[in-house]
Write a protein that binds this DNA or RNA. Structure first.
Lengths: 64, 64
DNA sequence: ACAAAAAGTAAAATATATTTGACAATATGT
DNA sequence: ACATATTGTCAAATATATTTTACTTTTTGT
């Protein structure tokens, strides 16, 4: 399932996938894959993404 | 740095590293390494651990 | 002190996250 | 309609998370 919260948070900062990727120090494809879903990133990358987007892990990656 | 919050949450459920590992479907060494720190687990594993211990990502893995 | 359980640690093998390069498809602005 | 940016996607290579086996050290209980 897609991570729409991540997509929305990125849009809220007016960043393209490529720009967010650069800020996080990863490739654009990695960001794309995470947003697309069916992907399992490392927690350090998730934390980096959260900090760049001013969100917390629960806000972007927690699932009930 | 060690993840003492994880260690404490595990203690709060009276589980050994081996028992938590089994409940999470991973090896004991993986749990040990995560508690020890200097490790970078996948977010799916973090989520599984959180659910087993009745915690959220922010409670166990978020770092300011 | 003793035995047993739990935790710490290491090397080699395997599974998988991430990169790189490249191209197609869709959106956005003029 | 056109040009450009953005997104979606794929295959092969690389980096790293995780497993397995095995052993040592520390804790816990009697």
């Amino acid at each position: 399932m897609k991570n729409l919260r991540l997509k929305a948070a990125r849009a809220g900062k007016d960043l393209s996938q490529a720009e967010l990727a650069k800020l996080c120090g990863v490739s654009r494809q990695t960001i794309n894959a995470i947003e697309k879903g069916d992907y399992n990133p490392t927690i350090q990358l998730c934390i980096t993404i959260c900090k760049v987007l001013s969100k917390t892990l629960d806000e972007l990656f927690w699932e009930e």
